[in-house]
Amino acid sequence: MKDSSHYRSLAVASRVDRLDQVADFVEECAVATAIVPHRLTVLRLVVEEVFVNVCHYAYLDGEGEVSVGCSVDDDAFVLEVSDGGRPFDPLTRTPPDTSLDLLDRGIGGLGIHLVRTLSDSVTYRREDDRNILRMTFRDKPVPPG
């Protein structure tokens, strides 16, 4: 599966109501590279967390553009989400304390915690005035249960 020519991308407005369009697009790209079904749900979750994060925080004055790119690199499915908003590295956020009692729990930072846990690698870079978050997913056997 070493083929970076699989690259496809989609650009949409940074609005949460575009989520299904973005997630469906990435799922379609992944199916073309034969990622197993369990990972498809996980992939969809990662797409949502990253996309919604951009919708909420990237553009201070409202709406902007978000680009989603899919490719295959060294047997991994690669997802890149980029925006032209203010410089922001979500990986610098402190992970949430998941041991706290219900009433003390905030939910901030949980999305990026899920992204870190469920993808095989996450890296941030700032390039040509854009924030780019790159995630990779490798095929894995479906866990029992």
């Binding site: 749900t41 979750l45 967390e49 919604v52 219900l102 009433l103 949980l110 999305g111 899920l114």
Partner: peptide
Amino acid sequence: LEYVSSAGLRGILVIAKLLR
């Protein structure tokens, strides 16, 4: 339920806190 994200968890937490 096939899928829950952090936005769904946030909704669950809001309801759990309200009920408590």
